[in-house]
Write a protein that binds this DNA or RNA. Structure first.
Lengths: 174, 174, 174, 174
DNA sequence: TTTT
DNA sequence: TTTT
């Protein structure tokens, strides 16, 4: 299929601390439960109404798992960008069941902490620290401007001093 | 919750003609099944792999239901913008089940035909016709520039009385 | 053109208080300056680099202007969803100039405060309060579930008369 | 800044063939001019109105440059996902000027052909061919499902046969 | 300058 | 069940 897009963008709060587990070959997988909610005033009664939607987010991307583990806690506000995926499984009685999740994997995913009130405390407490646009300190840029802010790019116009000193390929932590 | 976002963007093809039904008070509801797919080359075997994901889209917005009914058919390519919603229901044995759908309702929804090869034929066949940025011909603009193309906004330049033919009110539940 | 999309999503901080002005017929227009920034570690030098991008956001939507006026201040963190528009104007010497802005107008726009450290103080200070998913308290829902939280939609289950207090019509120029 | 997002999503048509140039060190850069347009019916006059917006898209990502070069032509319909960037330059008279562009660079970018009627003909004609979800044939997956369709992932629940046979890291073409 |  |  030429030209398919499958994208989910959420901003919401974690209902619980992230759950991190590992595959048999040691790769981390993180699960988040995220609430988004909307409120409005009922036209007839004038009452304030609110509806909360819960989302399951599954993170396969190793760098983003680290972000989840280090920075996110119950109550944290996050920006999540991933894909919709429906997984088939069997319940105890052998019946087919389906679960739809927001999956973060590969290049078109993102996870960024937006603050919020994580329960904090201890060494692993959530903090609003800079983590490089969605990555831990040890990770490269998600999309730096080649040549920098005054970046003069391409063609014959020689970058003035700056230049394109680095290859983003190596900076992308997937 | 201050500042929640719940947004899904899909571009894909319809696996079947839209299904339209009506509520008791006459409002239309459309269901679409949309496939998105990705392909890649396996690192080890060099084989071409493909994975298709199926999405259920439910349209409550009346104008967008009309678009679905008039223009979309099995095979049509569409752009869809909506929200994730998980609905709880009971199966025959009384067990709780959950279904996650992409819901188009209210102001932050969109449905636009992008062409594709609907099965066509007959009076209702899909066509790549102009439908006003996601709306049927009888509908107004999704977001015209106040004051029109040469729209000169704000300040002293009074918008020249423009206006739009129709009230989307009925479709927008705020 | 069948099927065009023009969408910008920003999360960033206000570099200054919103500027509100009015058209001759009294409609408000708000201007925001929003910074987004990215940081990364330089591959060669190991230095931490950061680049900030500044965006001009213009709000024609009346409800969202109110949100800007009441809740946003220098330093506020916001989620913005709008469209790219390039405006042509003449400088003092009569030369054509172009400015590209993110425009919030019509149904596919959104503005939501995400917290942040507005400079606050006084009656109009920014606060992280709930403002209905991007709207002031007096505004309706951006996209409530027809029928409410337990909303059982379509078919025979008649939506229980719900409704919404206000007509966004004035803000939505279709 | 913790948690910044800068994202542009466009679907539109190319006003001209892509322009490809190269940096001094041989990296390709592609420029696209993309039109998005909206139409509506004027409420007062009943006339059909249309407004077209032109966008400049600059592609630094090498894989996406190849896609542009091989598949896109004047008239092609494309999906573009990138970032807003404003570049400062000096005109002949030495005055500061600014241009805002949609930049595709790094991991959160995408370019996908959606069909459309490129002018075609010759060896380089646009075609609706599969290019791997936005990448040329020689590139890996943008986001394959780890373990494949029946992929049962993580933890102690032994993947039934499947498993995590491959590392996406190597499949990402940046 | 595209597209419908 | 779509599409390439």
């Amino acid at each position: 299929m030429a030209g398919s897009v499958n994208k989910v963008i959420l901003i919401g709060n974690l209902g619980a601390d992230p759950e991190i587990r590992r595959t048999q070959d040691g790769r981390p997988i993180a699960n988040l439960r995220i609430a988004t909610s909307e409120s409005w005033r009922d036209r007839n009664t004038g009452e304030r109404k609110e509806k909360t939607e819960w989302h399951t987010v599954v993170i396969f991307n190793e760098g983003l798992c680290k972000v989840a583990e280090q920075y996110l806690r119950k109550g944290s506000t996050v920006y999540v960008e991933g894909q919709l995926q429906t997984r088939k499984w069997q319940d105890q009685s052998g019946q087919d069941r389906y679960s739809t999740e927001v999956v973060l994997q590969g290049f078109n995913s993102n996870l960024t902490m937006l603050g919020g009130r994580g329960e904090g405390g201890g060494q692993g407490a959530a903090r609003g620290g800079d983590f490089g646009g969605g990555y831990g300190d040890d990770y490269g840029s998600p999309a730096p401007s080649r040549g920098g802010p005054s970046g003069n790019r391409g063609g014959s116009s020689a970058p003035s001093g700056g230049g394109f000193s680095r290859d983003m390929d190596d900076d992308i932590p997937f």
